[in-house]
Design a protein around this nucleic acid. Structure first.
Lengths: 228, 228
DNA sequence: TGTCCTGTTGAACACTTGTTCAAGATAGCA
DNA sequence: TGCTATCTTGAACAAGTGTTCAACAGGACA
């Protein structure tokens, strides 16, 4: 067996040097895998180092402390998931209502629809109480998600009613709600459904969750342009 | 200073004996206080023992292990919160729609509306992945909550439409949804709102959360008796 | 007052944790 | 073929963890 990279007289080389940027990224991804695999137990330096195939000391060489790595990992995860959702939304015809529905569906599809992901997020919520660094990331990522939904809802409500719907009677029941508040509501509904489905996928089927959220969206669309 | 209970020559007595049932209950309540105060860090035997004012050894004398105590604590907490909500529902006139709305309001009021409570619940979710005993409790308590909501929704949808609403045009948009699935949806919406409000009470005001959930309920009531 | 059951204590145990840091090894450059 | 900057290792440390168990002591009873 050829030892293409062997340099030591004893045999294979002990480790491979990487550029700091590459190593940092590898550590971030190992941290996410460790959290997905083991939840809160996967938070330990040793679990992450083992997942990355490096020694425990390396983490504190590339990050000021364990929580700095974890905070970066959460930022990275949010970005990845958010990009997947927004790509799904952009892939749909440029109709505000259709895009809002695509957003709902994408939120309830892979890679979001993964019980392991919930346990990463539970750790996130747990740490956001006591670790200021993590709290900041939590609030940043939540605000970013909310902006996306708020924009989708704002456009969908500004669009004219399709003719068939416009002939129906008015069914306005709730007082005026801003797109931001409605975005908070839709996000809460999706998060709550996601939470319960991940905790116990036997409770309901993904299509049922999507149907519940789509019904919410349809109720919203029917109420547009009816405020006094 | 009178030492009403002093028996030792050295001074106050070292401890007080209790009936096992009383001590078990005190330990359960101390565990809940510890979790509320410190989140996941409050899970430790020493934190709970300190909160209860007893030694570390006592917990394993009254419970087969730490997780048995924690499981009991979650059962106890669910019962307490559930009773508070159901009392609020029962205090309202015997009208199905009014009771459903009272349920929503009670879910977004003290003692439920408490950020510390969320962090107890986050520990609950976290443990339910790896500790079978806790997973069982989680599923039991979720199912019990769902039964309550399902019953409220079933009654509200079976009731006749009030005359004013009945004259309006039909606005049915979603396919048939069972009371159980609708209960899952309402529970998810309430949980999602509760989660976000507890993580960051600055995101929205409790009344706004109640308004969002009440709007969901009103949309539901309008759609009753319209299925083919 | 004395006895005894058992609720209660806290030291001891083996283990895991995050961080530090001296020592070693790699790979690019001269 | 060195030389060197720095990436990487892993032992060491103090502080924490859950559980066990011999010994203690409270308080009801005789």
């Amino acid at each position: 067996m050829a030892q293409a990279h062997a340099t030591s007289a004893q045999g294979r080389r002990r480790y491979e040097r990487h550029l700091p940027a590459d190593r940092r990224r590898a550590l971030i991804e190992a941290a996410l895998r460790s959290l997905a695999r083991s939840g809160a137990e996967g938070l330990s330096i040793r679990a992450i180092a083992a997942e990355a195939g490096v020694s425990v000391g390396l983490i504190n060489h590339h990050f000021p402390g364990r929580m700095a790595l974890i905070a970066e990992a959460f930022r990275h995860l949010h970005a990845r998931l958010s990009e997947a959702v927004q790509a799904a939304v952009a892939a749909v015809p440029d109709d505000p209502a259709a895009r809002l529905k695509a957003y709902v569906r994408a939120n309830f599809s892979p890679p979001n629809l993964d019980p392991d992901l919930l346990h990463v997020w539970i750790v996130f919520w747990s740490l956001s109480r006591s670790v200021p660094e993590i709290r900041t990331v939590r609030e940043e990522t939540y605000a970013a998600s909310l902006d996306v939904v708020e924009s989708l809802i704002g456009k969908a409500m500004a669009a004219p009613l399709p003719p068939i719907e416009a002939q129906r009677g008015s069914t306005r029941t709730s007082a005026k709600a801003t797109p931001r508040l409605l975005a908070i509501g839709l996000t809460a509904l999706l998060d709550g459904l996601w939470l319960e489905w991940c905790l116990n996928p036997a409770t309901f089927r993904p299509e049922e969750g999507i149907a519940l959220a789509q019904a919410w969206v349809e109720g919203l669309l029917l109420q547009r342009e009816i405020s006094p």
